[in-house]
């Protein structure tokens, strides 16, 4: 079975480590914040100028001056700090954020990512995604493995305009967890009940299948 949104978020959260500063993109990456283990301290960075983002506010706590990168009202945790956009991207570009998680339309086995622009459709912009992929060393891309019509999104070469070049080393899809090394996808884990063959059939970039590909454990 392909992973649900919550399962994807849970698997992302398994990559968190105690003391990590983490930037979570809009959508499934944001959900991972719900699965931070109780015995672990993780600080969430919001690119609009907040380190130490908390959950949504109670109705009476809503503050128009306190939002996240998705323009949603949020709160701050104890120990939070506030700063300008220039400062925020200095910490992103400077490689100070320990883990970045974001979505994509396509990735390829050269580590390229396309996530912001489909030619012919309306172009809304890249927001902070280009800065995040260029600045972070430790990035997880979360995405569906294939389109609804069954076309692979894990390619030998991205077809859409790139968000970043040669910067992606780890991809989590609804079917598998893969690393990108030496111009190849390496299959590390598979979603429970999903076969290696199924993943191979839906991966169009070169795929290395180790002898043992364990199922994900939640």
């Amino acid at each position: 079975m392909a992973l649900t949104r919550d399962q994807l978020a849970k698997r992302v959260a398994q990559e968190f480590e105690d003391g990590y500063y983490v930037n979570l993109g809009i959508g499934i990456p944001t959900l991972a914040a719900n699965f931070i283990p109780d015995d672990m301290e993780v600080m969430l960075q919001s690119e609009n100028g907040l380190l130490g983002m908390g959950p949504f506010p109670l109705d009476e706590e809503v503050d128009a001056d306190l939002i996240n990168a998705g323009k949603q009202t949020v709160t701050m945790v104890k120990g939070a700090s506030l700063f300008s956009s220039a400062e925020s991207f200095a910490m992103i570009r400077g490689g100070h954020v320990d883990l970045t998680v974001l979505g994509a339309f396509e990735v390829d086995c050269q580590g390229n990512i396309a996530s912001y622009m489909i030619p012919g459709k309306l172009i809304k912009g890249m927001g902070g995604a280009m800065d995040l992929v260029a600045g972070a060393d430790n990035i997880i891309v979360t995405m569906t493995h294939a389109s609804k019509s069954g076309a692979s999104k894990l390619l030998s070469e991205c077809t859409l305009p790139l968000t970043g070049k040669g910067c992606i080393k780890r991809v989590l899809t609804d079917l598998a967890l893969l690393d990108i090394e030496g111009g190849k996808f390496i299959l590390r884990e598979r979603a429970p009940g999903v076969s290696v063959e199924e993943i191979a059939n839906l991966t169009s970039g070169e795929l290395v299948i180790p002898d043992n590909v364990p199922e994900m454990v939640f």
């Binding site: 995604a129 280009m130 600045g135």
Partner: peptide
């Protein structure tokens, strides 16, 4: 890109005509 935009403004006010970025 958002970080580039912020830095372009910062540079504009700080007398730096241009900067290199990987972004």
């Amino acid at each position: 890109p958002q970080g580039t935009l912020a830095e372009k403004m910062r540079a504009g006010g700080a007398g730096i005509p241009a900067f290199y970025t990987a972004t």
